[in-house]
């Protein structure tokens, strides 16, 4: 009987997915939440991996900044230089994605080699 417990539950396998894409020859960028102010759906450390083809795993927000992060991620993939992004979320936008108090999110985007 195998007695080693397997990796924990939950959606926290972004790195494994990103690595699988990379091994398959795709260009991949990794975005990580660095800090948040106010109400934010994802905590620091949360990650989103994206490929040049547009595949995604994980998330860095409730959806409101993913589009912008993906656009920046494409640049990072091409140029190789990491970026530190900061997003302000207005209260109007925030309401749409469940950030009831608004807030700011800082996201680090790097190429995943």
């Amino acid at each position: 009987m195998a007695k080693t417990n397997t990796a924990g539950p939950g959606p926290d396998n972004v790195l494994e997915q990103a690595s699988a894409w990379r091994e398959a020859g795709q260009d991949v960028a990794l975005a990580t939440v660095v800090s948040t102010w106010g109400s934010a759906p994802r905590r620091p450390g949360a990650q989103l991996a994206v490929t040049a083809a547009g595949d995604m795993a994980g998330s860095v927000s409730g959806g409101c900044i993913e589009g912008a992060v993906i656009a920046e991620a494409r640049e990072v993939m091409e140029e190789g230089e990491p970026k530190l992004l900061e997003f302000g979320v207005t209260n109007d936008q925030a309401w749409e994605v469940g950030l009831a108090c608004g807030g700011r999110i800082e996201v680090f985007v790097e190429r995943f080699d």
Binding site: T6, G8, T32, V34, R43, P44, G45, F108
Partner: peptide
């Protein structure tokens, strides 16, 4: 819990990966 700290004037993000709770 991930957090940022300033060390020698540079800002670092420390992101932990813990094994599962048992």
């Amino acid at each position: 819990r991930a957090e940022t700290r300033e060390i020698d004037g540079r800002r670092w993000l420390f992101n932990p990966w813990n094994p599962p709770l048992r």
